[in-house]
Each structure stands twice: as structure tokens, then as C-alpha cells.
Design a protein around this nucleic acid. Structure first.
Lengths: 127, 127
DNA sequence: AGAATAAACAGTAACTATTACTGTTATTGA
DNA sequence: TCAATAACAGTAATAGTTACTGTTTATTCT
């Protein structure tokens, strides 16, 4: 009753995402599928990606908007899922991780960012 | 000679950023400064934040656009500074870090994301 | 199976974040 | 002090994303 129905487009979008490791943007998914599905709409891609991400079937990766920090030395951040606030965290930065990443991938790793998420001290009480 | 000049607006913007730990967006900085500086332009804030970030005086934090991943279990990523490609990294995820973050901050930490950056294997040879 | 209900769609308009452009102001080196 | 031009204010344009409108279609209930 209350809710979600099957849709061929959602299936398509999800399958496209499962078949790749490119971490595509909505635009990319749209362009992959459009030729075979000429009347697929970009809005549909966005809607379904958000839908799938909200239900936890796929994963969203990015801050919504660009933020800036005057502390330039690398340090971890905490980003609240509820209010969107970003906090600094006083935790050690481990350069050894970069070496491990290089070994695991072969890429020329120059640094890394750690971002924790959850509910911040202000939002926690509010449920 | 070669370029950069002093500007009161850049100074203002940088000082505002140094005085806070809110990791503000360009919009936030603009709204803080606008009342005291009625003819400050939002474009100027964007331009100077980017300028300061490019020269390494401040730090930018975000992917430019939203990306999606069908692998929902937490795992680190590598984002190439040159081509913008995003790769999965086969490295262990350490849940212990979340506990440490909780202890350090008091926030209700539910997870973390690690994003390495540098030049990917394709871009490395191209300089 | 066939009709009724509403979720999901395509197409498009609107909105938000960011960058580019234009004419003006102001820093700087001579 | 003055010419050269970086940086500015204001605004237009662009890019990414979301919302709206009328239509299609999956599901539910006979």
C-alpha cells in the first residue's frame, strides 16, 4: 500500500551504478543510459539516485556545498548529519596511511582527509 | 611586481575565516562581513577564497559535485587532483577510529569517510 | 481481466551555488 | 604624482540540482 513501487528506470539506474566503479555523478549515469533509453529524463536519474541513497541501497559522497578552513595543516572533521555543522577534531593525523594507500593503489598519494559523521552534541539531545 | 596586490577585502575575508572554527561557506563569510562592509560583493568573497585556497593559505573542503557508489559498506576513496576521477581503495576500515572521535569530541559518531588525494596512475606520467 | 488509485515518469521551469564579464576604483612601482 | 593594472562592485551567465505539471504505468481491488 503505502509506498514504493517497482520501476524499470530505477532498476536501470541501480544496475548501471552496480556495473561501474567510477563513482559516477547523476549526469554521467544519465549519459550512459540515455542512448538505449531515449526518453529517460535527467530529473528521473536525480530522483532515483536520491531515493536509493536515502533508503541506503547506494551511497552518496560529497558535502553539499564548498566550505573553507583557515587551519591548513591536515586534521579530521566531524560533519553533523542533522544540522550540517562542521567541527574540527583534535585527533592525530597519520601520514603512514598515505604510504599504505600508495601501496594498495599505485596512485601518487599526497594526503588524505578524514570526515566523521553522526549527530553533533547540539543535535543529539533533540532526537 | 609579479601580480598579487594587497586588498582590504582579502584581508577582511581571511581574518573572518581565521576568527572562526565553523568552516563557513562563501555565503556565510559574505553575510558576516556585509553589514560592516556594505559594498562588499559576493563575487569578491568567492574570488578571494579561491585565491587563498589556491595559494595554500586556507583550505577548501568538498567534492565539486555529488557522486554515487553502489558499494555501501564503508571503504576509502582516492580522488585525483588532476582528472577528478574517484577510485575505490582496498584498505581496511577501522571502526576503532569512530570510538576515538567520540572520545575526542563528544559527538555521536556513526561512521567516517577517508578520502585520499594526489595524482592517479593515469595522470602521474602526464606530469 | 478491467477499472481505480497513486507512484513514478518525461519534460520543463525554477532555484542555488559558483564563475565570468564589464566598467570603475585603488595599490604600487617609477 | 601618475600610469599600469590588480582587484573591486555589480550583474549576467552557467552548472548542478530540485520542484512542478500533466501523462504513463505498476499495483490493488473487485
Amino acid at each position: 500500500m503505502n509506498g514504493k513501487r517497482y520501476s524499470r528506470q530505477r532498476e536501470l539506474i541501480y544496475e548501471a551504478l552496480r556495473q561501474t566503479d567510477e563513482h559516477p555523478t547523476a549526469e554521467m549515469v544519465y549519459h550512459w543510459l540515455k542512448p538505449e533509453n531515449p526518453n529517460l529524463s535527467l530529473g528521473t536519474v536525480y530522483r532515483n539516485l536520491n531515493l536509493l541513497a536515502d533508503e541506503g541501497t547506494i551511497r552518496r559522497m560529497a558535502f553539499p556545498v564548498e566550505r573553507y578552513d583557515a587551519r591548513t595543516e591536515p586534521h579530521p572533521h566531524f560533519c553533523c548529519d542533522r544540522c550540517g555543522c562542521v567541527y574540527d577534531l583534535e585527533m592525530p593525523y597519520d601520514p603512514e596511511l598515505d604510504r599504505q594507500a600508495l601501496l594498495a593503489s599505485g596512485h601518487d598519494v599526497t594526503g588524505h582527509a578524514v570526515t566523521f559523521h553522526g549527530l553533533c552534541v547540539k543535535c543529539k539531545p533533540l532526537h
